[in-house]
Design a protein around this nucleic acid. Structure first.
Lengths: 230, 230
DNA sequence: AAAGATAGTGTAAAAATCACGCAAAATATT
DNA sequence: AATATTTTGCGTGATTTTTACACTATCTTT
C-alpha cells in the first residue's frame, strides 16, 4: 500500500435525496423528471454527482437548490447503495439522504437539468429510474421509525399547527390511525409544545388551539435524560 | 450532463469495519496496527479500498479475511463518512460497517499489511488513526440500540449459552445492569430460545441450563407480526 | 334557533414493567 | 458428612404505562 491514492480504482459517487413533504393530507416525495440519459423522461429522485471539495450536506444543498429551488432543509443520512448494476453507466455509489420540508415554504423551481418536478404521494409512486423505488421505501421506513422517538415531524408542518394537524401528520407517516385523546395526552405530557394562545379560525367548527414546537425546552429536556416517545 | 462518467471527479472509497467481539466479560473491538503511512504504527479499524467490481459486503469479506483471517460475519452498514479532512492523502469516503463475531470461533491471523491485531475493550480504546474513534462510538450506540429490538446478540455468543451469559452480554452492550429474573422472563416469553436439555457444568455452583437461539422460530414469529423487545 | 362538526378533557380496565423473596442444585469448606 | 456458599429457576404483588371509550364545549352553517 502506498501513500498515493491514484493507483486505486475509484467509483463515481452520487448523492440522492428523498425529500419528504406534507400537505395536511398525505406524505409526499419530491420527484424529478430527467432530461438526460440514463432514464431520460423518467421520474427519479433528485440527485447529482459529488464534487471533490464538497461535504455530503453541501452537495445536497447545491443539488436541491439548483434542481428544485430548495434550501436549508432538515437532512439525515439514509444509506449508501453500492450494488454493481444500479447505474448503466458503470460503478456508481449513491450516498442517500432524506430531507423534511414544508412544501408551503418553498416554490418549486424546475432547474435547467430537469423536465419537471412534482410532489408525488408516497402511496402511489410510479416506477422510478435506477433503484430509487428501493431508496424511497427504505426512507419511508426510516422516517416512520424516527418520528416515534425524535420530534422531527415539526419540520414538515407550519410553525404553528393544531393538535389534529400534528396527529394527521403522524398518521400519514406511520400509516395507522391513532386515538385522538391518547395522542393529545402523550404530546402534552412530553412538554415539547408551547401554546400560542391563538386559534385556527375560519373552519367550519370549533377553532383549535395553535401550538409551536418548543425547541429550547426540548433540548433542555433531552439534557435531563428525557426521551421523546410516541 | 453526459452519459460519460469520466468527466466527474471521483473520491476514493474505503470500507472500514467495526468488528465487535465478546468474551464473557466485556465487549471488544478488533483493532489493526498499521504498517504504512498514514498513521503507520498506530491503531485503526481494519479497512481497505473498494474495488470496482466488488459490492461492499464482498469487499469487507476480502479485507477481513486477508487482514485478520475472519470470514462469514454478521454485517450491518453503519454510516458513510465523507468529511473533507478525514484522510491526509486526499478526499476519501469511508463506507463503514459493523460486524459481530464470536472470537472463539476464529484465530486472528495477522496479514501482510499489518504490524499487529488485537481485541481491545470498548471501554479503553486508544486514540485511533483517521476518524476511527468517532466511527467506533457511532457503532457502539447503533449496536446498543439494535440489540433492544432485534436478537442479534447471539452472533457474539457460542451456539449454546446460559441465560446468565446472555444477560452479561446485554449488560455489556447496553452499559447498564438488568434484573436477572425480569430478564429471564422477558427472554423466555419471547419464545426465541430453545433449550438443549444440557447444562453448563464444572462451575462452582448450580449448573445452568444451556439454550440455543431458535432462528426458525424467530422468523416464524416475525412473520406473525412479533416484534422482539428487551 | 337548531343542526352539524370538530375541540377539549376524564376515567377505568388491561397490560407491561419493576422490585423483590425464596427454594433448589451444584461446589467449597470445615 | 454436615454445613456454608454460590448461582439458578421461578413466583408474586406493587407500580406505571397503555388502551379503550363518552361526554361537553365552541364554533359554523342552515
Amino acid at each position: 500500500m502506498s501513500n498515493d491514492l491514484s493507483e486505486y480504482p475509484r467509483p463515481s459517487i452520487t448523492i440522492d435525496c428523498v425529500v419528504f413533504g406534507y400537505d395536511d393530507e398525505r406524505l409526499s416525495v419530491l420527484l424529478l423528471n430527467r432530461k438526460e440519459e440514463p432514464f431520460a423522461n423518467q421520474w427519479t429522485l433528485p440527485g447529482g454527482f459529488l464534487n471533490l471539495e464538497e461535504t455530503f450536506e453541501v452537495a445536497i444543498e447545491r443539488i436541491l437548490s439548483c434542481k428544485a429551488g430548495l434550501a436549508g432543509l432538515y437532512l439525515e443520512q439514509l444509506y449508501t447503495f453500492g450494488g454493481l448494476g444500479r447505474d448503466p453507466r458503470g460503478r456508481v455509489l449513491s450516498v442517500s439522504y432524506y430531507a423534511l420540508v414544508n412544501p408551503r415554504q418553498f416554490e418549486l423551481v424546475v432547474g435547467q437539468m430537469a423536465n419537471d418536478l412534482c410532489w408525488c404521494s408516497i402511496q402511489d409512486l410510479p416506477a422510478l429510474g435506477f433503484d430509487h423505488n428501493h431508496i424511497v421505501e427504505m426512507a419511508r421506513r426510516r422516517l416512520a421509525a424516527k418520528v416515534t422517538y425524535q420530534p422531527v415531524g415539526f419540520e414538515l408542518l407550519n410553525e404553528q399547527f393544531t393538535m389534529t394537524e400534528l396527529q394527521n401528520l403522524y398518521e400519514s407517516i406511520l400509516g395507522e390511525s391513532l386515538d385522538r385523546r391518547n395522542f393529545y395526552k402523550k404530546i402534552m405530557a412530553s412538554g415539547i409544545l408551547k401554546s400560542t394562545g391563538e386559534r385556527r379560525r375560519g373552519l367550519k367548527s370549533r377553532p383549535a388551539e395553535l401550538f409551536m414546537f418548543d425547541k429550547t425546552r426540548y433540548e433542555q429536556l433531552v439534557n435531563e435524560g428525557f426521551q421523546f416517545k410516541i
